[in-house]
Design a protein around this nucleic acid. Sequence first.
RNA 1: GGACCCGUAGCCUAGUUUGGAUAAGGCGACAGCCUCCUAAGCUGUAGAUCCGGGGUUCAAAUCCCCGCGGGCCCGCCA
Length: 571
Amino acid sequence: MNIERIKGIIIEQIKGIHDFSKLELSSDWFQKTPSPDLGDLAFQCFPIAKQMQKNPQEIAKKIENYLSSNKIDYVEKVKAVGPYLNFFLNANEVIEAFISGITYEQSKEPKKIMIEYSSPNTNKPQHLGHVRNNLLGMSISQILEHQGNKTIKVNLLNDRGLGVSKVIYAYLYLAKEKEPNKKPDHFVGDLYLLFNKEVKKRPELEQEAQRILKRWEENDEEVISSWKKIRDFVIEGYKETYKKLGCLFDKEYFESEIYKEGKEIVMEGLKKDIFKEKDGAVIAPLEKYGLPEKVLIKSNGTALYITQDIALAKKKFEDFEIDYSIYVVASEQELYFKQLFKIIELLNIASSDKLYHLAYGMILLEGGKMKSREGNIVDADSIIEELERLALSEVEQRYPNLSEEEKKERTEKIAISALKFYILKVDPTRDILFKPKESISFQGETGPYLQYTYARIKSIVRKSGMNSKDIIKNIDLKCFENDECIEEKAIALLALEFPSIIEKAAESLKPSLLCRYLLDFAQLINSYYHDKRVIGEDKEVMKARLALLLASSEIIKKGLWLLGIPVLEEM
RNA sequence: GGACCCGUAGCCUAGUUUGGAUAAGGCGACAGCCUCCUAAGCUGUAGAUCCGGGGUUCAAAUCCCCGCGGGCCCGCCA
């Protein structure tokens, strides 16, 4: 069962009123009551009043009269309050609906959705911005899969271009060390910084980098062999970072392998007059569509990022026959994607309603935007390390006698959950102002708080000495009847909303909705087991409470899983 | 100069898509709670001109217009 179905049952009943049969009724008109003593679900009568040209208060009263005469499943009583129709749900029925199983609705038309995410430039280690990208990409695929879609996770490695050429230049002509003396992607990142430091003194190096790019496209042996080395260093380093973050990919594309096809497509477009020549370069004139023109091939003949992106779009649809293509890329690229999508449409590769740019906000530092080229970044590996150090000291304080292996496992899971939740809890479209202290906190609205809630439930279950199967068998809900079980009902009601929260997160591509929900839910659980004892109570009461908690733990586990966050059985 | 996004307690955020009852949570502050299933927790107090001004509406944090403040883009970078 879930809350949408309960709303549906009520709506069906309302439709039974004879003047209402022709009305359009929507379960969207339900809302939460401002306080539980007003009921559990409120139904607004404004829309019906509008359709019937009547006073909403009269409508409410009329529905109340009609519904009060017969018993509706899950409903205890109905009360009209002003323009609202407040439903008090039956606690036992609601609790039973929760314990006996939440129903997750799956998409009726499953789609094949490609999610391109991460897509780093292979000239530096990943920073917090990449982390946000990686986490969003993973979480969104999990959520879309959960809704019954098929997702294909793709990483486009930008292993070509000026940034990469700068590193090649530094490697060949500026650096003394030729082999990594540290994590290899960081070694390459240092080369990038070295180049950018040097170019301030000798601006002509910009030209040198362009020349490297030209030589690269001409297959110059010296350039190509260093390029290969550098690229392998970076990819080797990324492997570790991706593993820590739990990133998976079904397919990797390399810009270096695609750009030529991109050039061909652009040249064809030029022949067909879709594109134009201007100052020796090939451009897409987009003014007609309210967009600035876009250079597609430079006047020196070399490709640009977009050259390759056009070919990649074609490949994506050909290779996988996808219904939609989602690009997880920072919001600073919004204009770029408008241009790209228009070009893809003009070339008849795909219509733009199949393309979606998930533009997530920037992570800003106190001093402003992160800039790899200047080195003012929060690097992904170091923040994970720092979190692990902190988590370890917390674990050691609490459980000094754990085995090293067990400590390590807990430490890693706690650290990663703190980082992931800190980033995912914010609406993706919003910028995040990175606060070092808050990012490393394990208290309050954090991943570890949710893990803790889960672990405590598991601990209570363990100490009860019962196994999960026996707990769920033959629960006697009557034992809840002794008191009004307000807390249990509140938990069950919120739990029944879980499926629609996932659905909203999937529709809006916002894992943050799930985060907020889990916090609210965990809060109820925490105060519940704080107030009500489980073990030592009457056997039936204990069983019923255990069943409620066990079902709750499944919600937390599933919710965290959708966010890519692991749970701990003990913490 | 043009485009897009944002502005909610000292700080971080939810709520804005689809207007609807008393604007919600965390951090920080203050006051409590471990002889009681894990205190990474719980309970309470203080703290809001929902950036400002107009408009639409029975009803605006939410929609529209103007202004102010911030971010970001408008490179033959990616």
